[in-house]
Design a protein around this nucleic acid. Structure first.
Length: 424
RNA sequence: GGAGGGAUGGCUGAGCGGUUGAAAGCGCUGGUUUCGAAAACCAGUUGGGGAGAAAUCUUCACGCGAGUUCGAAUCUCGCUCCCUCCGCCA
């Protein structure tokens, strides 16, 4: 949510941001509602003031056993008036709020302006691309041959877009997220969290998934709960409606959770293997920081995510997203894409975003600054990193001509020393 | 699922329908005192909105939402969450 004052004072900037983000918002009617609401508020406050004063007079008269019926009669009218004002104000406030919740965050100044991913900028490339003396196979072939991935049976159990990991495949999954969680919690100073996978509407609104993206979520209608699309939602909401003390900042959290996405808008895209699935594990990193540090914190978040890929020996590139590719709540975002020789593409395994105070305002997360004033924190998050595509990259990059897959060195301690996945 | 009890400021905890945004205690901050500290004493110490250059004024909020009333932390109803007991259960 944007600060209403920014919309009041810098309407052109906000309008430009909305256009650049390929969004739409009814900003003019918002301002109209706002000023109307303000004038009603002033009138209503005035009446309330009168009521408060007269109430005291009534109470004094009564305590002296004097007649107060004139005052009471007068206040009846005033109270009715106030009630009408309150109803009108509530209506305006609700309308205002619903518009405000649909206005996207403003991109940071250094975010390239552009309509679609073609305007994204590759900011760096890291690692060496592996050379193969043979044509590397895609993970669905390798997975099938080694009997570690089974998409047909997953479809039988649930439907298209689900994965079943088996044997060394299941073990590799577990090795990957244990390795990542250990790295972040032990080397990078993140506190490990294991949150609920179901969250309420308020949490979902807080991080910005609602109200705009409801059709992308799995929902439990009986309880109005949502399956989390990312750990960002429960973890960012840990401190919703709290005022933190400045010395507690920055706060770093990491969590590995399953993520559930209906992928409503992307049917027919990336359908093979597990390039795009409805349920996947992801190690997430979340930061709550002081506003003036948030862009430095974004850089360190990015480097911590990249560290995972470096240690796994996977070639990757970092992409700075343009305005049109930026998500609703983000002010700036880097994607990390890992090279997969089998599918012959870079795959997005992480998005590291700074939301500035956009989520903090919705979640009502504040801190007391050095002058004792309350301010909203800045929130950031990034994947560190998403599992299926990392698994794809590992399998495809570490495949050998004989059909076996080598286990990256750093994962071997997590695989009971296993060095090679072989056909049984 | 059934039966009870509860929700008040950073914490503990009072609160008759009428100067109660809220007693008291603790904690915290500042001051006095001290060589320094402790203790003691004094003062301050919730958050949001509006008006104002500021001082300041004003309004809202006692889990949330409705209602009764001239007036609600206090009465009524609904919801949420927490606790206890019973049942069921990984």
């Amino acid at each position: 949510m944007l600060d209403l004052n920014i919309i009041r004072n810098e309407i052109e900037k906000v309008k430009r941001a909305v256009i650049n983000k390929n969004e739409s918002a009814n900003l003019d009617s918002l301002l109209e509602l706002d000023s109307k609401r303000k004038s009603l508020l002033i009138e209503c406050d005035d009446l309330r003031n009168r009521r408060n004063i007269t109430s005291k007079i009534i109470s004094e008269l009564k305590s002296k056993k004097q007649d107060a019926s004139n005052e009471i009669q007068e206040m009846k009218g005033v109270s009715d008036n106030i009630k009408q004002f309150e109803v009108d104000i509530k209506t305006l406030t609700d309308e205002l709020e619903s518009i405000l919740l649909k206005i996207p965050n403003i991109p940071a100044p250094d975010v390239p302006v552009g309509k679609d991913p073609t305007s994204n900028v590759i900011v760096k490339e890291c690692g060496e691309r592996r050379e193969f003396s043979f044509t590397p196979l895609p993970h669905w072939d390798i997975g099938k041959t080694l009997d570690i991935l089974d998409f047909e049976r997953a479809a039988k159990i649930t439907g298209a877009g689900f994965a079943l990991y088996k044997g060394a495949g299941a073990r590799l999954e577990r090795a990957l997220y244990n390795f990542m969680l250990d790295l972040h919690s032990q080397e990078h100073g993140y506190t490990e969290i294991f949150p609920p996978y179901l969250v309420n509407r308020s949490s979902m609104t807080g991080t910005g998934q609602l109200p705009k993206l409801e059709e992308d979520m799995y929902r439990i209608p009986e309880d109005d709960l949502f399956l989390i699309p990312t750990a960002e939602v429960p973890v960012t909401n840990i401190h919703s409606n709290e005022i933190l003390s400045a010395q507690d900042l920055p706060m770093y959290y990491t969590a590995c959770t399953a993520c559930f996405r209906r992928e409503a808008g992307s049917h027919g895209k990336d359908t093979r293997g597990m390039l795009r699935v409805h349920q996947f594990n992801k190690v997430e990193l979340v930061k709550l920081v002081r506003p003036e540090t948030s862009y430095d914190e974004l850089e360190s978040l990015l480097s911590v995510s990249e560290k995972v890929l470096q240690l796994l020996g996977l070639q990757h590139q970092v992409v700075k997203l343009c305005t049109g590719d930026l998500s609703f709540a983000a002010a700036k975002c880097y994607d990390i894409e890992v090279w997969s020789p089998g599918v012959n593409k870079f795959l997005e395994v992480s998005s590291c975003s700074n939301f500035e105070d956009f989520q903090a305002r919705r979640c009502n997360i504040r801190f007391r600054d050095d002058e004792g004033k309350t301010r909203h924190v800045h929130t950031l998050n990034g994947s560190g990193v998403a599992l299926p595509r990392t698994m794809i990259a590992v399998i495809e990059n570490y495949q050998r001509e004989d059909g076996t897959v080598e286990i990256p060195e750093v994962l071997r301690p997590y695989m009971n020393g296993l060095e090679l996945i072989k056909k049984k």
